[in-house]
Simulated assay, not measured.
Amino acid sequence: MIINKTDARANITNNLKLVELQIPLNGLHGERIDCFIDQIIHSLRRTHYIDTIKQRDISEARIYPNNNQFDPLKASIFHFKNNNIDEAIWLIYLSTFFGKNIDSGWNLLRLVYLGYNSQWTFENISNNFKEFSKWYKESWKEISSTNSKKNKFGNHRKYSTLDPEKKLNPIDCFEDYIDKVGVNHESLFNFIEENSKIKKVSKFSLIYKYSNYKGFGRMSKFDFSSMICKIGVIESEIDRAFINKSTGPLSGLKDLLDNQNIKPQEAELVFNKINDLLDLGPFRGQVLEDAICNWQKSPNKFKKFSL
């Protein structure tokens, strides 16, 4: 999806006026307005990046971690297009768990996924977890630093650890994920499909609810669930953001309203109302969440904060 900046600005400006009729945005004035709109446009472009990639032919080289073209998200799309759903979701999980670092990129994920003479695909690690655990304990120090470069977790995973002796290390977290998923992801996603109709909530909301994997906080659950929907494994709009459990987005909404005393539960309702009125498309929950979070870091001057 190509985002035309001129058209997007006009639509957002008009829709902000609709928001103001119902919800006074007292923190949005002067140069802050243009800055906020620029963050929304930037967020639209980032959020729809996967849509753009899905339209292209993806080289098979992208799926192999021993290839310098390896990219876990493009690999996930490749596997999804080739009906290897388990591997597509496993790569979404890994990309969420490790994150993309501003300096070392996906290298930490790549080296763990690569293994030693045995790529740790979902099938392989599920069937040979003891072997993975043994290999990881022997390899984690070497993995953490290659070619004089420190391989790190992404910015949002800064409290994560590679040390197998510490809590929430990859061995413990992967084991928890595999135990909860089972032999494949089919039963979980059948459950999501069926209960979405029964409970009349979005499939995205249910994925989020049931993504209580070890080491996953609110942001990891949100990113994991969003990517599953954007790649198309589950077809659902990203209609919410669960900001009542957030830090940056909740802080940003308070600044937008110029109301530091609003309760998290009420803030969630207000966010959803603004989200609907702005009409930012099928991924609107993530678009607005990302935009508000980045805007509050620099409300008067537009800055790019995302990779």
Rank of each mutant, 00 (worst) to 15 (best):
L162Y: 07
E138V: 10
D86P: 11
D51T: 11
I192D: 01
S251K: 14
E87G: 09
F222D: 05
F97Y: 15
G30F: 04
G252F: 02
I58H: 01
E60C: 07
F80E: 10
I3C: 05
D279K: 15
S220K: 12
N151S: 00
K197A: 03
I143E: 01
I53M: 12
E194G: 01
E87Y: 11
P24Q: 03
E123H: 11
P164M: 06
N14W: 01
I262Q: 05
I238L: 03
G248I: 01
Q69L: 13
G182K: 10
T247L: 07
R32D: 00
I58K: 05
T6N: 13
L162P: 06
V270F: 03
S251W: 04
S43I: 09
L288W: 06
E131T: 15
D34Y: 09
E123P: 00
S187Y: 10
Q260L: 09
I58R: 08
R110F: 00
N244S: 14
A8C: 08
H48L: 09
N68R: 13
Y64L: 09
D103Q: 12
L108D: 07
D223T: 12
I41W: 05
L28P: 03
D71S: 10
N67H: 14
N117L: 10
S95D: 06
D7C: 07
N82T: 14
I143W: 09
Y49M: 08
K197Q: 11
E165F: 13
L277A: 02
N107P: 06
E268V: 08
G27H: 04
N300G: 10
F189W: 11
K245A: 03
P249G: 06
F305Y: 15
F224K: 04
I292N: 03
L28V: 04
T13W: 02
I50N: 01
D71K: 07
F224A: 01
G248A: 14
K130M: 01
P299S: 04
F216A: 04
S306I: 13
D163A: 10
S246R: 07
D7T: 13
D223C: 04
K245M: 08
L206S: 05
R157S: 04
F283I: 02
N124E: 13
E165K: 15
I143Q: 02
D179K: 15
G99Y: 07
F204D: 05
E142C: 03
W90C: 05
A10L: 13
S95N: 10
Q22C: 00
G217D: 07
K209D: 05
I41C: 06
N275G: 03
F122M: 05
N147K: 15
G217S: 12
Y177W: 12
L162I: 11
W140R: 07
K254I: 00
Q22F: 12
C229W: 02
G281W: 09
R110L: 00
L257M: 08
T161Q: 09
S104V: 11
W295Q: 02
Q55G: 14
F191R: 14
K137T: 11
D276K: 15
D255N: 14
Q22S: 13
V112C: 08
N67V: 08
M1C: 11
T52E: 11
D239F: 06
D255M: 15
S133M: 02
S59N: 14
L256P: 08
